[in-house]
Amino acid sequence: MSNISADHQKLDPDEALRSNMTRHLFRRISAHNSILIGGTVLGAIVFMALFASLLAPHDPFSQDLSKRLLPPFWMEEHNPKHILGTDNLGRDYLSRLIYGAQISLMIGVCTAIISGIIGSALGITAGYFGGRVDAVITFIITTRLSMPIVLVALAVVALVGGSLHAVILVLGFLLWDRYAVVMRSATQQARNMDYVSAARAIGCPTWRIVLSEIFPNVVNNLIVIATFEVAHAILLEASLSFLGLGVQPPDPSWGLMIAEGKEFLLFDPWIITIPGIALSILVLAVNMLGDGIRDVSAPENRN
């Protein structure tokens, strides 16, 4: 009897439809969840960065060598005035962490904007004009993709000298490839729509077609890529700063904090654990937000 009912279930089209719907629903819900979780965490970090001067208990730059390397709250001998302890120069670690969020977010957002402008301009131009223009831009993209980002970024930052602005500019001019590739194919699709032909038949100038007919129809891709590139840029800045060729001391970049803590990792491993966890949480939140937006806006593009 149980066998028959099992077989019956398999064949029942309503049942199949329902299970398909629950699966779909599950995806929708998990996409919304990841937007919710990612967005909340990211929002909290943005809040922390914006109101750093109010939230930070101490000046992140003020040194006190008598209070070097105080341990954080979960360890013995911690100082209640310094919840996350102090670094090797006696600077309050929590305050540096809070101010460090400003650097990561600034780099992530500015880089994503610069590379977004470069990549979209190249991608839309290639996709819209096609032919030789497309061949040249595709070649530029291919060339860019055959250059290792970290190596080139290191060499260029060494050239201009490490600083917040240098890192933003260098990464901005390197991380545009994904925008270009996606915008190119999205534009190729939009370009073949009849509304573009209609606009051309009206006598609409090319710049106007691109801005008001094509761009609004490809812009949703931009938001998804931008979130991933924010995460990418934050990780790269941390790597560059860790290698000593990014943000320079005494600025509290999280990557730099890990680099400065590296020599103390033998006895005080917490000193690299804290900024590393902060970085991972920030990047994870941004990635979750991006995943969620992508799944909600185009569930079929999953994976």
């Binding site: 729509m193 009849d194 509304y195 032909s197 209609a198 051309r200 038949a201 009206i202 006598g203 008001s212 007919e213 609004p216 129809n217």
Partner: peptide, 24 residues
């Protein structure tokens, strides 16, 4: 010019789903 031509000759396309910009 394309402008003068546009005022005289206009198209109606086959697919009204593709011929209207969905964002406008």
């Amino acid at each position: 010019s394309q402008f003068e031509r546009a005022a005289r000759v206009q198209p109606i396309f086959q697919d009204p789903y593709s011929s209207l910009n969905p964002r406008k």
